[in-house]
Computed example of a mutant assay.
Amino acid sequence: MNRTMITATNTLSQLQKQMDIISNNISNVDTNGYKRREATFTDLLVQEFNNQERANKEVNRLTPNGIRQGTGAKLGQAQLVMTQGALKQTDRSLDTAFTKEGQLFKVLVQTNGVNEVQYTRNGALYLSPLSDTEVMLVNGDGLPVLDENNNPITINGEAKDYSIDANGQLTVTKTAGATEVFNLGVVRVNKPQFLEQRGGNLLGLPANVAQDEVLTELTGGLRGEISLQQGALEQSNVDLSKEMTELINVQRAYQFQSRSVTLADQMMGLVNGIR
């Protein structure tokens, strides 16, 4: 196999990954709180051939000595873009929207019997009954929403009103007049490039990355940084026209690399056919 085919096939597999990222962005254009990912590329290792043994013959050369041949490109990073999405007013008391970038709710996910805290920007909250007198605050998939101490939020008694202030404090007013107060669990993302998509519009941390390196728990005095709006939902930050344009560019690059493989194969056929 000649070098052209090697370079092209190396790049083809990486372009396919970029198309997958763009397709995922497009499919979530209407998902509340979804944050798009942006792929960036980097060169694979370059091979150098020192074809000139006499250095004095390279004097006044503007490029590096020898011949450098690339081996293709690879997907360097698929960065999570945390820019603010547009807000849609719903006037529903358990709908909330962050108005600052980089803040996420905490939810509890059980995978293979192991509990893990994951994160979401989707502020559509619901109530799931636990008994005749107790309900739990959950997200749209029924996963428990956590408070600032990573405990599920459970509400006892019959409630008639729910109020969520700008700093994430949930106040439940009971029919008997009593109130119950909870602090919603919120984190600030410092290094979004480390977050992994876990499905269901949830984000998680890799197993080998410490939480303190990526996230900051907004508790105590830091709760003043939280910025929430009740009765609204944040839309995704996906720009459909931009994503479609990028998809067309990637498809053109994919076609170009595929054509390179075809041309290399034709040239090898011609060489092999020489008698």
Score class of each variant (00 low, 15 high):
M82H: 02
Q84V: 02
G85P: 00
G85H: 13
G85Y: 09
A86W: 11
K88I: 08
K88T: 04
K88Q: 14
Q89D: 14
T90V: 00
T90A: 03
R92T: 00
R92N: 06
R92P: 04
R92G: 01
S93R: 15
S93M: 12
L94T: 12
T96E: 13
T96N: 08
A97Y: 02
F98T: 05
F98L: 05
F98W: 03
T99C: 07
T99R: 09
G102R: 01
Q103F: 03
Q103P: 03
L104D: 02
L104H: 12
F105N: 01
K106H: 09
K106E: 00
V107L: 07
V107Y: 02
L108V: 06
N112S: 13
G113A: 11
V114H: 08
E116I: 05
V117C: 08
V117F: 03
Q118V: 12
Y119D: 12
Y119C: 10
N122T: 12
A124P: 00
Y126I: 11
L130F: 06
D132N: 10
T133M: 01
T133N: 15
T133K: 06
E134V: 06
E134G: 04
V135M: 09
V135T: 01
V135P: 03
M136K: 13
M136F: 04
L137T: 07
V138M: 02
N139V: 08
N139P: 13
N139E: 06
D141H: 14
P144L: 05
P144H: 11
P144M: 08
V145Y: 02
L146N: 00
L146W: 14
D147T: 00
E148A: 09
E148S: 12
N150R: 12
N150T: 00
N151P: 03
N151K: 15
P152E: 02
P152K: 03
I153Y: 14
I153G: 07
I153R: 12
T154M: 14
T154W: 11
I155Q: 05
N156E: 14
G157Q: 10
E158M: 11
E158Q: 14
E158N: 13
A159P: 10
K160L: 02
K160W: 02
D161R: 14
D161Q: 13
D161I: 04
D161E: 12
Y162T: 09
Y162Q: 13
S163F: 09
S163P: 07
D165T: 09
A166E: 09
Q169S: 12
T171C: 14
T171D: 13
T171V: 15
V172R: 15
T173D: 15
T173Y: 04
T173W: 07
K174T: 04
T175W: 06
T175D: 14
T175G: 03
A176M: 06
A176L: 10
A178D: 14
T179Q: 14
T179V: 05
E180T: 11
V181C: 05
N183Y: 03
N183H: 02
N183C: 01
L184Q: 00
G185F: 05
V186S: 06
V186E: 07
V187F: 01
V189I: 08
V189Y: 10
